[in-house]
Amino acid sequence: MNGPHDLGGMHNLGAIPIEVNEPVFHSEWEAKVFAMSFATFKNYFPVDETRHACERMPPGQYLSSSYYERWLYALELLLNEHHLVTKEEIEEWLAQFAHSQTSSKAD
């Protein structure tokens, strides 16, 4: 696919973000996205299918997302395509989580 992932030779993508003493994950959610994806490798999706799912992110979105945001996109896409989880289920759970967070703040 002639997608946004095929970056070799592209100009103007900025300076290389070199970080000294970088942690393995920058936040808990990055670690969780990584581990949840890893836990789907082989048992649910061939790794190449996950790579391809990342690439299917629309170009504008791909180029403005962080690495683990792209992994999250791929995970959600494949879970949905393979009828493991529907988009509606995710939005429903998210609404419940957001609600419980708001009500706990109000306490």
């Binding site: 890893f38 836990a39 789907t40 490798f41 082989k42 048992n43 649910y44 999706f45 061939p46 790794v47 393979h82 493991l84």
Partner: peptide, 22 residues
């Protein structure tokens, strides 16, 4: 293998995958 088991990955399976890969 192309066929997937569609089973929840156990700790032991994850260890095996880390150790031996694909």
């Amino acid at each position: 293998e192309l066929e997937t088991s569609n089973e929840c990955m156990t700790v032991e399976q994850a260890k095996e995958l880390l150790r031996n890969g694909i």
